[in-house]
């Protein structure tokens, strides 16, 4: 983010923001409803990630393009209308591409509209940055969110069904861990990933710094 008096980030750094430093799932712990709810399989997780990325990219781009003409009193209303539009578009698109995925994701496609990441990015980044920078940042954030979802989805599918992308990995005798495809499994796997991510970050920091604390939001 461009903070006055600070060297602006290069585009690569801007992209990496969302993947590593401000990963929406592992660092900001934002948008947990879809993360926990649709990460029962790798395909669902990826579809959700791509859908969210699409909405994120399109809406922040549009917000960035009109950032200088929107009066600040009505900016939130404008953002919401824009986000809702792209969510509706993505809803139609998914139904047109695959009905199976559409039914698996269910109401969570429409619920992208309340995903805090998107409004957060529109308000905190897109409304203050030019379109190219916004697009790069949004892509990074979307990729980070997709990676987070996929990390959960693949573990839950492997343990919960013995499959990855629907392909059986361990033969017919595999014992599925039913708890992994139930809601508690989502919390367990998310917790385990947060543990790993923070441990890696602390090690990368080179010191036994404080564990990054993250509170869960919508």
């Amino acid at each position: 983010m461009a903070i006055p008096g600070q060297q602006p980030l290069s585009h690569l750094e801007e992209f990496m923001e969302g993947i590593w430093k401000q990963n929406p799932v592992f660092v900001m712990v934002l948008g947990m409803c879809p993360v926990l709810a649709v990460s029962v399989s790798a395909v669902n997780a990826l579809s959700m990630g791509v859908a969210t990325t699409f909405v994120l990219l399109c809406s922040t781009l549009l917000v960035s393009l009109i950032r200088n003409v929107v009066p600040k009193e009505v900016r939130i209303a404008t953002y919401i209308v824009i986000i809702a539009t792209f969510v509706t578009v993505v809803d139609y698109l998914i139904a047109a591409i695959s009905l199976a995925v559409y039914e698996a994701l269910g109401a969570f496609i429409q619920l992208i509209v309340v995903n805090c990441i998107i409004l957060g990015r529109a308000e905190a980044h897109a409304s203050k940055n030019p379109p190219l920078r916004t697009a790069v940042n949004a892509l990074g954030m979307g990729a980070g969110f997709t990676i987070g979802l996929f990390a959960l989805g693949s573990v839950r599918e492997i343990l919960g069904a013995g499959k990855l992308f629907g392909v059986a990995l361990f033969g017919p005798d595999f014992q599925p861990w039913v708890v992994m495809v139930l809601p508690p499994g989502g919390f367990f796997v998310l917790g385990a990933w947060l543990l790993l991510f923070n441990w890696l970050k602390n090690r990368a920091a080179g010191s036994a710094g404080k564990l990054a604390e993250g509170g869960a939001h919508g």
Partner: peptide
């Protein structure tokens, strides 16, 4: 501003609906 944005978004939604309608019906 709101009217303009809403109009633009309305057009987007309608065109997305029209563009995907046949595919969605076929899928169903």
């Amino acid at each position: 501003t709101l009217a303009l944005v809403a109009t633009l978004c309305g057009i987007l939604i309608v065109s997305a609906y029209q563009g995907t309608l046949s595919a969605v019906t076929a899928n169903k």
